[in-house]
Nucleic acid binder design. Structure first.
Lengths: 122, 122
DNA sequence: CGGAATCCTCGTGGATACTG
DNA sequence: CAGTATCCACGAGGATTCCG
């Protein structure tokens, strides 16, 4: 199992990675990392997300059993989202990825610069 | 720094995650995990990728200094791609994510089923 | 406040054809 | 073989509006 066969498109692990790989899921999970949050709180934390995308992302996560949705019927409705155990278990790998990103930021950005600079030759 | 501030859209770590988060990058890096590969080999390994997307993804990875591109001027041109040290360092986090995906496949799929099933109520 | 529904645009990405 | 270039379709996703 050392080799890398399983990347045919019907591979179920790819379906999962597809979901995780979308632009917002990672960020929303991150926004929930330190406890339950209200809808609008998440919206504020994840800068640039539209209400539609947030709803959609949360629905997906709920559907995959990664977050729970709790409705409190008050005068202004209150909805809290919280990571499930599954969801929390995803934090580790996600953190790892983020740390990698931070750690390798400067080399990568430097590489991008170099790439642009070397455009002059031809 | 325990809290989760850094998700404003101009955060550089998010720019990196954006790149990684696209559908193909992860798969292409995976395809290169056990050594250098030719263009067509990668195309074959990453099922469903178009030639355009493969080129584009590889360019992006090259630009970020995660893969190297080696052209061998033979009768039929030969181009090999290989992970750089940076690229290889990404494998760890990616593996972690993949393992998570495999490990949590059944719960997630079960959750999806449950979600669908519970549609009957209303 | 949280969300559903509608509309509309803009970019991703596939198919095809051509080049070195 | 490994691209580049062009065209085009489709759907993600933003803005807006309305509802419980």
């Amino acid at each position: 199992m050392t080799a890398w066969d399983p990347y045919v498109s019907d591979c179920p692990s790819r379906r999962l990675l597809d979901r995780i790989g979308d632009r917002w899921t990672v960020l929303v999970v991150g926004a929930l990392s330190d406890g339950p949050r209200r809808f609008s709180e998440i919206a504020r934390r994840v800068d640039g997300i539209s209400q539609k995308m947030l709803t959609q992302t949360l629905r997906g996560l709920e559907q995959d059993g990664l977050v729970t949705r709790t409705v409190t019927a008050a005068v202004p409705v209150r909805v809290d989202y919280e990571l499930t155990d599954s969801g929390r278990s995803l934090q580790g790998p996600l953190r790892a990825l983020e740390e990698w990103a931070i750690e390798h930021m400067s080399p990568v950005l430097a590489a991008r610069e170099r790439f642009v600079t070397s455009t002059s030759s031809s």
